[in-house]
C-alpha cells in the first residue's frame, strides 16, 4: 500500500512519476537511480508481470482502471505515468 495523498484532483504527470518511482524503488535491485526516462524492463531487471503488478498499486492510488492494451508501447517510467495521467484525467 502507498502513502495517502489527495487524489480528488486529477494528478499531474510529475506527481505520477514520483509515485511510480517510489513504488519501483521497492523492487529495484539494479541500484540505478530511477527517473522518468528509466526503461522499466531493460534497466531495472524486472519482468512484465512485475510491471503489471505495479499497475495495481497505481490503479488503487488513483482509483482508475488501466487497460493492458495501453501498456503495449510503454517502455519508460514517464510513458507509464503519461498513460495513467490520461486515464485519470477522463475518469
Amino acid at each position: 500500500m502507498m502513502e495517502s495523498t489527495d487524489t480528488r484532483a486529477a494528478p499531474t504527470y510529475t506527481d505520477i512519476v514520483a509515485v511510480v518511482s517510489r513504488e519501483l524503488d521497492k523492487v529495484n535491485t539494479s541500484g540505478i537511480q530511477i527517473t522518468e526516462t528509466t526503461d522499466l524492463t531493460t534497466e531495472l531487471n524486472i519482468d512484465s508481470v512485475a510491471v503489471m503488478d505495479l499497475l495495481f498499486e497505481l490503479e488503487e492510488h488513483y482509483d482508475v482502471s488501466v487497460p493492458l492494451n495501453r501498456l503495449g508501447d510503454v517502455r519508460t517510467v514517464g510513458q507509464l505515468a503519461e498513460v495513467v495521467r490520461e486515464i485519470a484525467a477522463t475518469a
Binding site: F56, D63, V64, S65, P67
Partner: peptide, 25 residues
C-alpha cells in the same frame, strides 16, 4: 485477450472486491 480488440483489465487474484471496483468504473 491479446488477439481480440477488446479493452483488457486485470483484477487482483481471487479478489471479488477489486473486480467490483473495476466493474463499477
Amino acid at each position: 485477450c491479446k488477439l481480440g480488440n477488446a479493452t483488457v483489465l486485470r483484477f487482483r487474484h481471487n479478489d471479488a472486491r477489486d473486480l467490483e471496483r473495476r466493474l463499477r468504473r
